[in-house]
Computed example of a mutant assay.
Amino acid sequence: MLPVAATPRALPAPTTARAFSCACGRPVFFRNSECLACHRPLGYAALRGQLLALEAAPSRSGRGSWREAGVPVRRAPRYARCANLDSAAACNWLLDSAEVLAGFTLCRCCRLTRTVPDLAQPGAGLWWCRIEQAKRRLVSSLIGLKLPVVSKAEDAEQGLAFDLLLSAPDGPPVVTGHADGVITLDVSEADDARREARRHELGEPYRTLLGHLRHETGHYYWQCLVEPSAWLQPWRELFGDEREDYAQALQRHYADGAPADWGQRFVSAYASAHPWEDWAETWAHYLHLVDTLDTARSFGLDGERVELSYERFDAELVADEGFLQLINSWMELTGVLNELSRSMGVADFYPFVLSAPAVRKLHLVHRIVAAARA
């Protein structure tokens, strides 16, 4: 008698969906502003986490003149398309009726950009587009995780802003970083050749625009979610005392490099520089794994269904079944994705090994995010 195959468990629902269909039934993707099959306009409704097929819905004001295709007219919310749709940023996000009534013309993601690079400089338009694409990916995840995402124009004290700066030919270099809710990004990081050269120069196995943005938001959310809260003491127990002189710590890191045993305690070499950098690198790692697993699950893939056996993290390390499922799925999925990358002759998809202390730090990020959602 043949053995009966076990019924596969249902995939966990993604926090932020990544698989979408047009009204015509064809697949469409997060970046799309038009269906390539039927040429229907598309727009991303951030609070719904959905890429919508659109049809015209004329209004007296001329704004909010789109609605979701195929939905009864009386029930269909009105939307406006972001004013950056036809700019170099090529934004495909929507504004809902409340944003339109408030007088906004930019979507909630584009409103976060306080300073746009000088588009008269060569390559600036293309680089701005690449940065905004990465930022839309980031912000959609933050909204999906129900983290606070509001621009400084709307909340001067607690809001977030991005200054996208490009060095003048004879001027000082732009330094990427965060200060009190303002993230400054060197726009030339969007030049693939320059970014790859810097990656080799600094000995980093992974350096991307999305990685930069996720890292810098880690500093922002530390100020929002950790510093003023009861999380600060458990945070210090895992990450260390952030009151250590930051400038001296970075100077020491760049002069001496990471300690030889960094891989046994940190998610990356740079994380060993200072507790703030350890947090920001761990935060970025958490966003990497959540969004990648969301994408995989959106398309019917899951780490626990691949034919690959890893020594799984268990309750002796972290007594949190939901988190253990997340981290074990991640390790199994990335193992297969690394092999697929090697089959194409490109760098590993995930060039990291997670130690037990790093997993404990990821678990604290997970708990802090869950508390913020609640």
Rank of each mutant, 00 (worst) to 15 (best):
V4Q: 13
A6G: 11
L11F: 02
A13P: 11
T15S: 07
C22S: 08
G25M: 03
R26N: 09
R31D: 10
E34Q: 14
A37E: 11
H39G: 04
H39E: 11
H39A: 09
L52K: 08
L54N: 03
S59M: 02
G64M: 02
S65Y: 04
A69E: 04
R74T: 11
R81S: 08
N84E: 13
N84G: 06
L85E: 12
A88S: 14
A88I: 00
A90N: 12
N92P: 13
N92I: 06
S97R: 14
E99G: 14
E99C: 04
E99S: 13
V100T: 09
A102G: 08
R108G: 03
L112V: 04
R114P: 05
R114M: 03
V116N: 04
D118C: 05
W128L: 12
W128C: 00
I131W: 06
V139Y: 07
D155V: 00
A156Y: 08
L164Y: 14
L166G: 14
L166T: 11
A168R: 12
G171R: 01
P172K: 10
V174A: 12
V175S: 12
L185E: 05
V187W: 07
E189F: 15
D191H: 15
A193K: 14
A193E: 12
R195K: 13
A197G: 14
R198D: 12
R199C: 04
L202I: 05
E204I: 01
P205M: 03
Y206C: 03
T208G: 10
L210A: 10
G211K: 07
H212A: 02
C224I: 07
L225I: 03
L225E: 07
P228M: 06
L232K: 13
Q233V: 15
P234K: 05
P234E: 03
R236N: 07
D241C: 06
E242S: 11
D245L: 04
D256P: 02
Q264H: 13
V267Y: 07
S268K: 08
A269D: 11
Y270A: 06
Y270N: 04
S272V: 05
P275G: 03
W276Y: 13
W276T: 05
Y286W: 13
L293E: 06
D294M: 09
D294E: 05
A296R: 10
G303S: 06
F313Q: 09
A315I: 02
A315C: 11
V318D: 06
V318F: 06
E321W: 06
F323M: 00
I327F: 00
W330A: 09
W330V: 00
M331F: 01
G335W: 08
L340K: 10
S341Y: 11
S341M: 03
G345D: 10
A347P: 07
S355K: 05
L362Y: 10
H363E: 01
V365K: 02
I368M: 15
